[in-house]
């Protein structure tokens, strides 16, 4: 069982990570408390693998082996021999801390617990276990089976050995690791704030319209998507909650202050593509 990876949470991120690990040749145990979530997660994985074969990114053989590598469970104890567990449960500190406490009891002493959190403190998660040196962030980007980047986040107590083991694992997954310290938003969600924040202010100040700002950002800045198109894709509510989280964790640093336009869009249920209307209509 030396190469067993446990994944906790069979949602979008958990199932994507399970697929990546299985394709890299690891034995994967995918856990979720809900049987229905497991079924949905496995379905997503099988569909993505089939698409990979269709697009000739994978062979039929790769896909078959990957499917065989993944087993599922709703009994957390089944993860007891995993060398690494990656958790991708709901983004709430109390829930993740309770989960990490249980994993700490179940797992062998040397196993690493990695969290796919995008906004919570790895140091705070580590503090809920007796092994803060073996707790680390492994932040995948959605969709996890396609996006190359993984932010590896070192908590205050995370050891060098843990960092180097997870960096190697990320590379074996075929991903591109970057190392970030445990600060709000890590790298991407922090450094990207002005892209949305300034676009919203330009709109609010009447410098240019939604369409014109997107056009300028793409055609003069060389970005693939304009800020408003991108907010519509991400979900204006999701984007606001990331902004808010970084803003609050930095004790109201003015650079991260959300914009009233975001709140108004959320209040109006104009959340972007998913509700059919955001800054654009779909």
């Amino acid at each position: 069982m030396a190469n067993t990876i446990g994944i906790v949470g069979a949602g979008t991120m958990g199932s994507g990570i399970a697929q990546v690990a299985a394709l890299a040749g690891y034995t994967v145990i995918l856990y979720d408390i809900e049987q229905s979530a497991i079924e949905k997660g496995i379905n997503t994985i099988y569909n993505n693998l089939a698409k990979g074969v269709e697009k000739k990114k994978l062979t039929e053989k790769d896909s078959e082996i990957a499917r065989e590598q993944i087993s599922t469970t709703n009994d957390l104890l089944r993860l007891k021999d995993a060398t690494t567990v990656i958790e991708a449960v709901v983004e709430r500190l109390d829930i993740k801390q309770a989960l990490l406490q249980r994993l700490d009891d179940i797992l062998p002493h040397e196993s690493i617990i990695a969290s796919n959190t995008s906004s919570l403190s790895i140091t705070a998660l580590g503090a809920s276990t007796e092994r803060p040196d073996r707790v680390i962030g492994m932040h995948f980007f959605n969709p996890a089976h396609i996006m190359k980047l993984v932010e590896i986040v070192k908590g205050k107590e995370t050891s060098h050995t843990t960092i180097s083991r997870i960096t190697s694992l990320t590379k074996e997954f075929g991903k591109l690791p970057v190392l970030a310290s445990d600060t709000p938003g890590f790298i991407v969600n922090r450094v990207a704030r002005p892209f949305y924040g300034e676009a919203l202010r330009l709109l609010g100040e009447g410098v240019a319209s939604v369409e014109e700002i997107d056009r300028i950002v793409k055609k003069s800045g060389g970005f693939k998507m304009g800020p408003f198109e991108l907010m519509d894709l991400i979900g204006i509510d999701v984007n606001l909650s990331v902004s808010r989280s970084v803003y609050e964790q930095y004790f109201h640093e003015s650079r991260y202050r959300p914009h009233p336009i975001q709140q108004q869009m959320v209040d109006g249920n104009l959340l972007g593509r998913k509700t059919g209307k955001g800054f654009y209509e779909y």
Partner: peptide, 22 residues
């Protein structure tokens, strides 16, 4: 400046995490 990451990692993160042109 706050040592969140190295400059190479900051650049890599933005190019591969959110597709920035640079």
């Amino acid at each position: 400046q706050e040592e969140v990451a190295s400059m190479e990692d900051i650049d890599t993160a933005m190019k591969y995490g959110v597709n920035y042109p640079n």
